[in-house]
Amino acid sequence: MDNYRFILSGGGTGGHIYPAVAIANELKRRYPDAKFLFVGAKDKMEMEKVPQAGYEIKGLWISGLQRKLTLKNLMFPFKVISSLLEARNTVKQFKPHVAIGTGGFASGPLLRMAQRAGVPCVLQEQNSFAGITNKLLAAKAEKICVAYDGMERFFPKEKIVKTGNPIRTDLVAVSKNKEEALDFFGLKGDKKTVLVLGGSLGALRINQLIEKELDFFAKQNLQVLWQCGKLYYEAYKKHDSDTVKVMAFVNRMDLAYAAADVIISRAGAGSVSELCLVGKPVIFIPSPNVAEDHQTQNAKALVSKDAAIMLKEDELDAEFETNFSNLMGSEALQEKLGKNIRKMAMPKATEHIVDEIEKLLK
Rank of each mutant, 00 (worst) to 15 (best):
E142R: 15
K143V: 15
K143C: 11
I144S: 13
I144T: 10
C145K: 13
V146M: 01
V146D: 06
A147V: 07
Y148R: 12
D149M: 00
D149P: 05
G150D: 14
M151S: 11
M151P: 13
M151H: 12
R153V: 11
R153W: 03
R153M: 06
F154G: 07
F154M: 03
F154H: 06
F154C: 08
F154E: 00
F155K: 04
F155L: 04
F155C: 04
P156H: 07
P156M: 08
P156D: 07
P156V: 11
P156K: 09
K157M: 01
K157V: 01
K157S: 09
K157D: 00
K157W: 00
E158T: 05
E158Y: 01
E158I: 01
E158M: 00
K159I: 04
I160T: 02
I160C: 01
V161D: 00
V161M: 10
K162L: 10
K162M: 11
T163G: 04
T163C: 06
T163V: 06
G164L: 11
P166A: 04
P166G: 02
I167G: 07
I167K: 02
I167C: 08
T169V: 02
T169P: 00
T169M: 08
D170A: 06
D170N: 06
D170G: 01
V172L: 10
A173E: 14
S175G: 13
S175M: 05
K178H: 03
E179H: 05
E180H: 04
E180I: 13
A181I: 03
A181F: 03
L182K: 06
D183H: 11
F184N: 10
F184T: 13
F184Q: 08
F185W: 09
F185R: 08
G186L: 09
L187Q: 13
K188N: 14
G189S: 14
G189R: 13
D190V: 08
D190I: 05
K191M: 13
K191F: 04
K191H: 09
K191V: 05
K192I: 00
T193P: 00
T193R: 01
T193M: 00
L195Y: 07
L195S: 08
V196H: 04
V196D: 04
G199P: 09
G199Y: 13
G199H: 11
L201N: 14
G202D: 14
G202I: 15
A203I: 12
R205A: 14
N207K: 08
Q208K: 15
Q208F: 08
Q208P: 06
L209R: 14
L209H: 13
I210Y: 09
I210P: 10
K212V: 02
K212M: 06
E213R: 15
E213Q: 14
E213V: 09
L214E: 10
F216W: 05
A218S: 12
A218K: 14
A218F: 00
A218E: 11
A218G: 04
A218N: 06
Q220P: 00
Q220D: 09
Q220M: 11
N221H: 13
N221S: 12
N221F: 03
N221M: 03
N221G: 08
L222C: 04
L222K: 03
L222A: 03
L222G: 05
Q223G: 10
